[in-house]
Design a protein around this nucleic acid. Sequence first.
DNA 1: TGCTGTGAAGTGCTTCACAGCG
DNA 2: CGCTGTGAAGCACTTCACAGCA
Lengths: 219, 219
Amino acid sequence: MLDPNTLKNKHIPPATIKRLSTYVQVLEDLARDNIKVISSVPLAEACGVQSSQIRKDLAYFGEFGIRGVGYHVKSLIQAITSALGIDREWPMILVGVGNLGRAMINHLSANAQGFVIKAIFDCDPFKIGEKVHGFEVYPTQEIKHIVDALGIVIGIITTPPERAQRAAQFLIDAGITSILNFAKARLKVPETVQVEYVDFFRHMYALAFKHIQAGRHDL
Amino acid sequence: MLDPNTLKNKHIPPATIKRLSTYVQVLEDLARDNIKVISSVPLAEACGVQSSQIRKDLAYFGEFGIRGVGYHVKSLIQAITSALGIDREWPMILVGVGNLGRAMINHLSANAQGFVIKAIFDCDPFKIGEKVHGFEVYPTQEIKHIVDALGIVIGIITTPPERAQRAAQFLIDAGITSILNFAKARLKVPETVQVEYVDFFRHMYALAFKHIQAGRHDL
DNA sequence: TGCTGTGAAGTGCTTCACAGCG
DNA sequence: CGCTGTGAAGCACTTCACAGCA
């Protein structure tokens, strides 16, 4: 069903990948409510997109639907997670055990879905050796050692902005090619390295701006 | 300089709004390094976009550059923050004082930039009255009261997924029209209400998928 | 001369509309 | 008959290329 060539030959829009995460979320809700089958129209409504969008997004990966019926919820979840590669384990490390770092350690430990933190690091000598949520804090110099030993693939940066670039360099030097950056800083990385930026303020700016636009009748 | 009609008549792409947040971040770095003026090419490189993209984005709001020279860093920051409406204060409330909620209360208190949490809420009677980072936890029934009294504009949801919709309803009933949702759930809201979704897993999925794609040579 | 601001061209994503299958 | 899967059309954002100003 999941023809390797389907995936291999097509260019899949990044926008599609982002939406798949939403689809999985909504589908898992449906599965929990014991709904077996759903068609693209109600699924689209629950996800806040057009039904044709869902059909096209899924078509990039294969044919998962039954004409005249819809999609089987559980097997669609399976198909998407397998296509995204999130049905396996992705070991991660985290650099920067401050406020934000602790928050993410807590949150990710409680919500791991294959994305599991394996070790945490900081450059502050006073923090080294401290236990945080069951993890011992290692010095950043140890990153390469641990990455090699545990086959780490993803690095998370939760340092203050001014130390983010240095943290990134440690990760890159250790061979990490996927970085999730929570620090409020842009990173300079080689183009072989993928960076995803998480920026809460970006969302707040968007809300603020729309709020102003919506209220612009009074100008 | 900031002609109201410029803003009023043009449709500004959401993609532009997202990037402006990056521009401000990078410009503030430059200001800290005491750089007075920058042209679109090096600014673009630091932001990870094309220079023409920056010039076009800024043009939606006015003419801020000096031909043959570039942009004055500090006045450009001022221009962007004023255009976005983030040079004023945006009082917020937060609903859901669990792991994630505590994390955000800590983080946002440390990094407020006009976006200030004014009160926090939970529906768990055991948490009511507890002090978290200086805030007393109020019952969710009190939301309307506080929103009216303090002129709250933005509501943050950090509840578990199954309680997110209920939290949203409390916010909407209190008159809130801008919601920042950290819960792993889609919200059903009237179209007058703006929701921004923050989903860490979406970014991890993107990293995982790109990682697989990059390594697909061996198939 | 150098860099901005901007129409025009190009690109990629979204939506439409319907053929085709269960 | 209903809903999927998909080429074609439409739309929105990005990039180009250069006129115009400091």
